[in-house]
Amino acid sequence: MAIMQFREAIRAAMIEEMERDERVFLIGEEVGQYDGAYKVSEGMLKRFGPKRVIDTPISEAGFAGLGIGAALNGLRPIVEFMTFNFSFVAFDQLVNNAAKIRYMSGGQFKIPIVFRGPNGAAGQLAATHSTSTESIYSYFPGLKVVAPSNPDDAKGLLKSAIRDDDPVIFLESELMYGMRGEVNEDPEYLIPLGKARIAREGEDVTIVAHSKSYWIAMEVADRLAAEGYSAEVIDPRTIRPFDFDTVVQSIKKTNRCVIIDESNPFASVSSEVAFQIQQRAFDYLDAPVLRVTAKDTPAPYAKNLIEYYMPSADAAYEACKQVMYVD
């Protein structure tokens, strides 16, 4: 084990996989000479050379499509988006080509590609740079979507994503790149996609939260613990395929659930999770499933407004008390 920043864990995963398999390469804006816009790929150009760490022009549709073509021809690209907000420029490549070619070719082609980069809001970046895209990409059958909450999960999940034969959307967070944590250094340390982690066991309420929201959940669990309530915190880690079984098992125990999700509320990850819960655990629910999400508007710029817009620990705490029927 070693203490690493989130960005270092991602870098370690990429380096290990590139050393293990020469078909793996990294492509994106500023990933090479500039060492990455968020220094995730620092030193990688020097280590692997310009054939495997490739700087691109500002043309997401172009390099995303290039990556897909390379994957179709047997390579295993890692495509970095400087932020997933820019992935919208390459939307057709992601949702029509990456997601559907395997299906439309009757399985003749595999698309072993990872699209990774920071996702969601990160302070005062205003509306066009603050989108949470997990709800959008998990909508499409054919895409896997991963959203780790800590360095160790980031490394284990990214390695699994790189080795996966299907396209994986790998969502990071600008605000978490500097977060430190213990990371398993075993080059074969893989965390399977589609498996949630019970981060904390509890009896009174289940909180489901991924990525940054996970840390809100842990804070709320601490506050509740101080008042004598125990919250079970589940980090789904993979948004699609989603590990509903773990969540349902938990709710059979706690009978209540709060979902924290930075997405806008309509047709979001939390909508789907809440739907699945009511379908699979209806008879175990003692309260309606509640969720805490971003507000149903574009992200504001002003500091006070973006704070108000984002899901907060206070709101999540209130939601937990509401489903527990305590004041």
Binding site: D283, Y284, D286, A287
Partner: peptide
């Protein structure tokens, strides 16, 4: 009544009409 409460009432043979709810 919550779904869970209904299920429990059925299991224990309780008549929900005889129970005072304390939820919203």
């Amino acid at each position: 009544a919550s779904p869970l409460a209904r299920k429990l009432a059925k299991e224990y043979g309780l008549d929900l009409r005889t129970i005072q709810g304390t939820g919203p």
